[in-house]
């Protein structure tokens, strides 16, 4: 058996295989639910209801999607230039730390006007965290997969240290969490009475901007060229290393916004469970979206829906929430396979 590339895959092929992947994912998830002792159809219904069955559920899904849009964009931007940033988790926490530091000290008295400055500060922190691995890559050829991944652990330990030490909330009853952000520095709700905060709006704007950068700017053209063929890019005079550094700044900054929006929009303080792996789930989000920035919004909401829905389902049906993780993992694998099958045909012999 071998694979033969298809020059111009038809629309049926491009939609059919991903759709089939979704169906098979649902079937496998139902099987898992059945093994866990629940009625598969009922379980599925509960997931749907929990994710989008009510206004509350839907807004909860969008809230959960917000950090995933940021990390998904961060990864889509980096992967497009073949910069394998596995460290969005670290950049997220860097953004969160800076948000808390700025928001509880120097800028705490300035009111809402300081919010953009806090956001920018967070972005700079995320960018700097990714800059180290990228400079190691461009100068010494160190594999960024390893360095960015390891940075996640360094950053988690740093957060743990900060929360037990210098940043520990004196009023926190001994819990490892930071002092709360100034009320005025919290991201406002999008509408009165809705639980959805402006982080979601910023995420949508960011997705639009990333799309614009990739499709319409010189930098976007350079990033795509470097990602598709660095050898030809270098030959044509594109400064490959410079483009990688700029990509890293953008990617790290976007991931840091996830930390900013979670702290300023949702939690109000920094804790060790700020991110249940948004940085890693962002990889799934970006891959499912085929690295397209607007697709990231869609897949982030979809993935968030599965998480929120599975949470609610597990409470209602008594099925472990791990089913959500397994659904996502099977979904990703099948989608990657489906994407391959839209571009290649399996030939015998």
């Amino acid at each position: 058996m071998r694979l033969e590339p298809i020059a111009n895959p038809g629309l049926g092929r491009r939609l059919g295989f991903p759709a089939a992947a979704l169906v098979v994912t649902v079937v496998i998830a139902s099987l898992l639910a059945a093994i866990a002792g629940a009625d598969p159809l009922l379980t599925l219904g509960l997931v749907l209801k929990g994710a989008a069955g009510s206004k509350f559920a839907l807004l909860e899904t969008l809230n959960r999607a917000t950090p995933l849009i940021f990390t998904g964009l961060a990864i889509a931007v980096a992967f497009r230039a073949k910069l394998w940033n596995i460290g969005a988790e670290a950049q997220l926490y860097a953004g969160a730390i800076v948000t808390v530091v700025l928001g509880t000290s120097v800028l705490s008295g300035m009111g809402a006007a300081a919010l953009p400055i806090v956001g920018l500060g967070a972005m700079v922190a995320g960018a700097v965290v990714l800059l180290g691995p990228v400079v190691l890559k461009t100068r010494f050829g160190v594999d960024e997969v390893v360095t960015t991944l390891l940075f996640n652990f360094i950053m988690l330990l740093l957060v743990s240290y900060l929360l037990e030490g210098p940043m520990k909330d004196p009023m926190g009853m001994g819990w490892p969490k930071s002092a709360p952000l100034d009320r005025a520095l919290r991201l406002p709700r999008i509408a009165e009475g809705l639980r959805l905060h402006w982080g979601f709006g910023v995420a949508l704007i960011a997705a639009g901007l990333v799309w614009f950068v990739q499709a319409r700017t010189t930098l976007g053209y350079e990033m795509r060229a470097v990602g598709l063929n660095p050898q030809a890019a270098r030959f044509a005079g594109i400064p490959v290393n410079g483009v990688l550094v700029k990509t890293a700044l953008l990617s790290g900054g976007l991931a840091a916004l996830a930390g900013f929006s979670e702290v300023a929009g949702l939690k109000g303080h920094l804790s060790q469970d700020l991110s249940p792996g948004f940085g890693y789930t962002g990889i799934i989000v970006a891959m499912l979206a085929l690295l397209h920035p607007l697709g990231v919004v869609v897949t982030a909401i979809f993935v968030a829906g599965i998480f929120v829905g599975a949470d609610s389902m597990s409470r209602a049906a008594g099925v472990p929430t791990y089913i959500a993780d397994m659904m996502l993992a099977t979904g990703l694998l099948l989608m990657v396979l489906a994407i391959g099958l839209t571009k290649f045909r399996v030939v015998r012999g």
Binding site: T218, E222, A225, N229, A233
Partner: peptide, 21 residues
Amino acid sequence: HKTGTIADFSLTENAILETYT
């Protein structure tokens, strides 16, 4: 194939590879 062009780029994107700035 490897140095002169970027295979997945369109003709337009390849045509301005050296003059895009």
